[in-house]
Nucleic acid binder design. Sequence first.
DNA 1: ATATTATAGGCGAACGTTCGCCCGAACGTT
DNA 2: AACGTTCGGGCGAACGTTCGCCTATAATAT
Lengths: 344, 344
Amino acid sequence: MTHRVTIKDVATQAKVSYQTVSKVVNGQAQVSSETRERIWQAIHDLGYRPHITARNLRVGASHMLGYSWRSVPSDQFNPVLDKFLQSMVEAAEKSGYHLLPFPCPPDHAQVEVYRELIFSGRVDGFVLSSTNLNDERIAYLLDTGFPFVAFGRANPEWDFPYVDVDGTAGLRVATEHLLSLGHRRIALIAWPGESLTGKFRVQGYLEAMQSAGRLVDPDWIARGEHSALFGEIVAQRWLDLPADQRPTAIIALSDLMAIGVMNAIQERGLEVGREIAVVGFDDVPMAQYLRPPLTSLRQPIWELGQQVIAMLIKLIRNVTLEERRVLLPPRLVTRASSGTGAPG
Amino acid sequence: MTHRVTIKDVATQAKVSYQTVSKVVNGQAQVSSETRERIWQAIHDLGYRPHITARNLRVGASHMLGYSWRSVPSDQFNPVLDKFLQSMVEAAEKSGYHLLPFPCPPDHAQVEVYRELIFSGRVDGFVLSSTNLNDERIAYLLDTGFPFVAFGRANPEWDFPYVDVDGTAGLRVATEHLLSLGHRRIALIAWPGESLTGKFRVQGYLEAMQSAGRLVDPDWIARGEHSALFGEIVAQRWLDLPADQRPTAIIALSDLMAIGVMNAIQERGLEVGREIAVVGFDDVPMAQYLRPPLTSLRQPIWELGQQVIAMLIKLIRNVTLEERRVLLPPRLVTRASSGTGAPG
DNA sequence: ATATTATAGGCGAACGTTCGCCCGAACGTT
DNA sequence: AACGTTCGGGCGAACGTTCGCCTATAATAT
């Protein structure tokens, strides 16, 4: 590297003061069209590019948006990361921002890391994910007034901007789908009660059952850890019931658990889709390759990424948000695992 | 935000010049221990954090490492992104660097985007992925001498630092595994000839077959697009052969294609693992949940991420690399799909 | 006691921008 | 002819650091 070409080089080349070059670069009006062209010419000739760090220092912004996510254990999959990141990166770029992915700190150190990023001027805002009910980060950021948008909800008493998948709507649609196929005993595999995301999804199931006038047997809702094994164990338990009492359809709150369910069913020699319907959530890429292919709810990840960044940038620019709470419904992708009608 | 607390605030509080504070913050020796403590105290009291942008401007570095990746179509999975990113982000952070993910530009605009990032001073180096034989980006970066490390190889005539998975070793191990189980007719599903990664992997297969003294029938190597469907079609073709001529084992260069193979086999009513062995590559999380679970080659993604960043940072700091070309072998994860022995 | 060296810490400058203010010229108005 | 207005463009300053150099004092050696 010989010597970085700066605004001053352009200025001498174009025979103006360097501040005038700045005006041209930033599209300010106070320059005659002749000199403007002369300056652009010089910029082009010299291959000048504004130095972002200097600009950022001057304007007091980093044009960076912080994001960290929890890595999933390697026996699981993160179905959304690729698309979500791409979406955010692209949306940010369009507005002159970049994403700063930082290592997800251990729970107790969360806030400290966010503090650090704020006070070192590294980021202008945050995208939060993996939010939980009383998320410390949200509490902290609300307290300091630093711009952020969450991907996921939290304590309903708090007023903060978020985008989220409408799990309630998703499960309502999935349940209605099964009901319309004639299923009456529809079971649900959910997460522990602490899970907020789980709560919303269960609610959609309950709503759909209720408005169809179906009573829900509490035994039809199983709660446990997010794993294929748990899905398998629960399904086995249900399959032990006499045929006229056991569920004819099982919804799992994730594809991972749904896969466990499918494996349990097939090990009993039963046919998924014909004898027992299975529905998952996430629509992981693999869902379509399972045998039978898995009916699942696909999250509008791209749109969520676009929204979350658009909102965050508005927040940073002090534009008021017309929508502080955005819920986007997932789409039911119907495949063979949910069958064509209830048995019997 | 009232007022950012700067080095000067600390200085007045500690009754020294602000440059001395800088010395303390950067751990320089020329300060007595009393004043040093006084300054640290002031830093702590005021909650001072150095302003990164200002520091970067002064030292003429951005402490950012550029990275972009090609998003896979949504019917496929990116098995490595999550871990690879986390690994790189974490490794970078340890050395005071951050990752800058930027949108993967369309092919024709690749170089221009890299140029821009360099000349606007946004990054100090690049990690390249999805490299191809005559990668324009590599050519350009070699030409300008800008620091980068590739994840993947390219034109062997070029001398540039890279890390990569040793696909040759991986396929050698996989093939030897099948040979040791008594398989003689081992078929391979590969990518088109242009694929460099594919070429290395095929080579491993050929080496293993050769050193076992097995002739390789050219018909046992199929080449086509990376999809489950292609795997399925090819497998069907092989299954049409008389039982004493068809392959008893099939290796696919990716799990996605292996899944197609498994489905084709099962649709013929044959049993994967007992009648025909199947081996994949990638060890996607889903592999263990398939029925039967898929034997596959797992890439050492975490280590690759650590290495690539370590090398890049050395390059930036002008430390000579002891190893400019790092190949890490994948690990064969043996599961039921490769069976316990060749049939017959 | 003087000369030499080491040490602590101060000071000006610079990194590459943008911002706000100012001034001079040109122009139109009364 | 004097005035106000508009427009083009110059200028100083600042953003928060780090760097290199300088100086005064203290410590050591002769």
